[in-house]
Design a protein around this nucleic acid. Structure first.
Lengths: 215, 215
DNA sequence: GATCCATCTGAACAGTGTTAAGATAGATAC
DNA sequence: GTATCTATCTTAACACTGTTCAGATGGATC
């Protein structure tokens, strides 16, 4: 503490809209910093120290708010699931008919994954999260249920079949997103993305065909 | 170099069947050590130093054979894809009829992932591998094509539709495996695994129904 | 105005991957 | 049979990482 103690230098800290901490702003600053790292560097690029650096605090500061790196990432993942659930609900709300809603949700799911790869990968990196955190599990379940409500409409309400169909839908779009992110369907940068999304369109048409199109 | 120089102490090194290195055995020892770590600790538990430790060499030794950690893991991933491709081909060969073959492949794929989670996760952790390694890409493509040959039979040879159907099949089983590993379908330990595999069975039946079962 | 207490810092620790220079020893050449 | 060559491995160091703990800091409370 030789050069950074004066109020003037303090206010130059990055990602600190209000000059004073001690007011619960550090949590938000750390979460925002983490999301920025994930967006720029991907899930593997995240480090707790870098998040602290961007928030303008020492490496030990985050521990007082989140316990450890897993705690911070868990909070980031929760927000990610909330965002995903919102995207899925909105996609369904803009369509008429169960098949069209499911179709739109599938596209929205993969679009979310390709637009926010770091965040998406981290959401499903259980080992880096507090996997049994109650709020995390709830947020994850809520996102999964976005499929279930649409699928229930598709299969006509039978709960057993709805569970199976929801698992099928989630598996398909999740697997497609993961494989696309690992470039198994070719590049996903720039115009490569459009092509990958068209492949997804065909996959969804193949698995959930328009009434009477298959068989 | 004070205590470990005598031939006697040298021979006590772990995972070193033949006492003499200098014969190309270190590559195999490092790969075997890495696979053991992945099996015991999962993908996140792998460290290059631990692999070197198990092979009985210094932390710098692997660099002479694999360049860096990514190089070693790439070799591990290649063997993983080879094993997976073998499993998929064998699963198909034991069945009659395209749908039954695809069904068996799906079960085999997820079974492979649940039995070797660390290896499986690492195979799809592009950031930890030399993603553009020619042999890795070839091994990955070979595994993916195990689906294509069966799916081509299913759709009757039309190549465009076969590509789509293969992407659909791979996506579904890959997504199911990933979600299962992240415990999204409940526990996957012990008898929980049987239940998860039954869910997969229902998913496959739902997406690729027996002739005339749906519609 | 003194005390309290949440918050944050500084410094340390054990661990990581990677690099460069040097030791070692099997293979080759004379 | 001895000397040289060359692949292989070690030692030591560097810049990182996450986490812990004693102590400084300063806003809120009495």
């Amino acid at each position: 503490m030789k050069k950074r103690t004066s109020p003037a230098s303090r206010s130059t800290r990055i990602a600190q809209p209000e000059p004073g901490y001690h007011h619960g702003e550090l949590q938000e600053a750390l979460i925002a910093a983490s999301e920025a790292i994930l967006a720029e560097q991907g899930a593997e690029g995240f480090t707790l120290r870098e998040a602290a650096r961007r928030a303008g605090v020492s490496p030990a500061a985050p521990s007082h708010h989140f316990g450890n790196a897993q705690g911070l990432l868990t909070e980031v993942a929760i927000r990610g699931y909330d965002a995903l659930a919102g995207v899925l609900r909105e996609a369904a709300s803009g369509k008429e008919g169960a098949r069209e809603k499911l179709h739109a949700q599938g596209l929205a799911y993969v679009d979310f994954a390709l637009r926010h790869p770091g965040r998406f990968q981290m959401m499903f990196a259980n080992k880096r999260l507090v996997a049994d955190d109650a709020r995390l599990r709830q947020a994850s379940r809520a996102a999964g249920q976005a499929f279930e409500v649409v699928v229930a409409e598709l299969v006509g309400g039978r709960p057993k079949e709805a569970r199976t169909a929801a698992a099928a839908a989630w598996s398909t779009v999740h697997g497609f997103a993961k494989l696309a992110l690992e470039e198994k369907f070719g590049s996903v940068k720039n115009e490569g993305r459009r092509e990958v999304m068209m492949t997804l369109n065909q996959v969804l048409d193949y698995l959930w065909p328009a009434r009477g199109a298959r068989c």
